[in-house]
């Protein structure tokens, strides 16, 4: 019974969005000039989806709180890290809530310190580390062992130089048509575009099949 109800809701919701998109906004005059009857309900349906997804987002922190509280109560290994997480979670919630409510300047300072001083700095640093990983990977993995690797390396060098002013500086003495940025643009606009189109067609075909299975409830996950 419950599976059937879930299937009905899934099918009905999918049908609504599919028909709303496929049906014209307005039929031609010779067909009566009828407006799409589903379109007025789209904003409300989307608001419903937004509320449901917000509830789902809340599940993550709730699960984490339950898990780490359990670790602390049962005195398991890693309880110190769990305690630190819970303290920071509570402080962040209080700081963010009070910062928006204009209660006291201390909360604004705390919020700025936690968000810009800690969270933003950590996040940006972890992304910045990618630059170092890239250089290390280029040293270890970009090895020209055969013709294909050589071609890939050559195109990578052209695109890397073509995307930055260094390439313009290196080839500034050459005629315009021979400058590296034009070569980079050609690689991206011609062979890359063709391959991207082929990949997109394949991906879209697979996504369509997977979506269709989910919508009709015939996928393995729905059994």
């Amino acid at each position: 019974m419950r599976r059937r109800a879930v299937w009905l809701i899934t099918f009905g919701g999918g049908l609504f969005f599919l028909l709303e998109f496929l049906l014209p906004a307005r039929t031609p005059d010779w067909l009566g000039g009828v407006e799409n009857p589903l379109t007025p309900f789209l904003p409300s349906a989307t608001n419903f989806l937004i509320v449901v997804s917000a509830m789902a987002v809340l599940l993550g922190p709730l699960n984490l709180v339950r898990r780490y509280l359990g670790m602390i109560v049962r005195r398991e290994q890693g309880r110190l890290e769990g305690a630190v997480f819970l303290v920071f979670l509570a402080v962040s919630i209080v700081a963010a809530s009070c910062e928006g409510a204009n209660i006291h300047r201390a909360f604004d300072t705390l919020y700025n310190a936690l968000f810009y001083g800690v969270q933003t700095a950590f996040f940006a640093s972890s992304m910045a580390l990618l630059a170092f990983y890239l250089v290390s990977a280029a040293h270890r993995a970009f090895r020209i062992n055969n013709l294909e690797a050589g071609l890939m390396m050559a195109s990578a060098v052209v695109i890397l130089l073509g995307q930055v002013p260094l390439g313009d500086w290196l080839t500034q003495g050459l005629p315009d048509a021979f400058q590296v940025r034009h070569a980079a643009q050609w690689i991206l606009a011609v062979p890359n575009t063709g391959v991207q189109r082929a990949v997109e067609i394949g991906v879209c075909g697979g996504a369509f099949a997977a979506g269709f299975r989910q919508w009709l409830g015939i996928g393995a996950a729905t059994r």
Partner: peptide
């Protein structure tokens, strides 16, 4: 980008 090319 120069660092990446030089490393390679």
């Amino acid at each position: 980008n120069a660092a990446i090319i030089l490393a390679a």
